Amino acid sequence: MTRTVGFLIFDGFRILDAAGPIAAFEIAGAHARGAYRLSVLARRAGAVASSSGATMTAIAFAGAPRFDTLVVAGGLGTYEALKDEGILACLREAARDCRRVASVCSGAFLIAEAGLLDGKRATTHWSRSRQFAERYPNVRLEPDRIFVRDGKIWSSAGITAGVDLALALIAEDLGEPVARRVAQQLVVYRRRPGGQSQFSALLEMERPDGRFGPLLGWARERLGESLTVERLAERAAMSPRNFARRFAEETGVTPARAVERLRVEAARERVEGGRAPIEAIAAETGFGDPERMRRAFLRAYGQPPQALRRAARLSA
Rank of each mutant, 00 (worst) to 15 (best):
S197K: 03
G46K: 04
L41G: 03
S106Q: 07
A283T: 15
A312Y: 09
A47E: 15
A95C: 05
E93I: 01
E269Q: 08
R43C: 05
D17N: 06
I111H: 06
R263L: 08
F247Y: 12
V101T: 00
T228L: 12
F243D: 00
L165Q: 00
D209Q: 13
R310L: 13
G302E: 11
G224H: 00
A300H: 10
F25P: 00
E284H: 00
Q198D: 07
G158Y: 01
A183C: 02
V148S: 01
V48N: 09
Q303W: 11
R3S: 14
G75W: 00
R100Q: 02
L174A: 08
G302N: 10
R100H: 13
A60I: 04
E249G: 08
A24M: 03
V148Y: 01
W218A: 01
V40L: 13
A19G: 08
D164T: 04
E206I: 12
L186R: 00
A256N: 11
S226P: 07
F10P: 10
L174V: 03
C105A: 04
R3V: 02
G34T: 08
S315M: 14
A81H: 09
A267C: 06
E269C: 09
G286Y: 00
Y36G: 04
R235F: 01
R268V: 05
V48I: 14
F132A: 12
A64H: 02
V72Q: 00
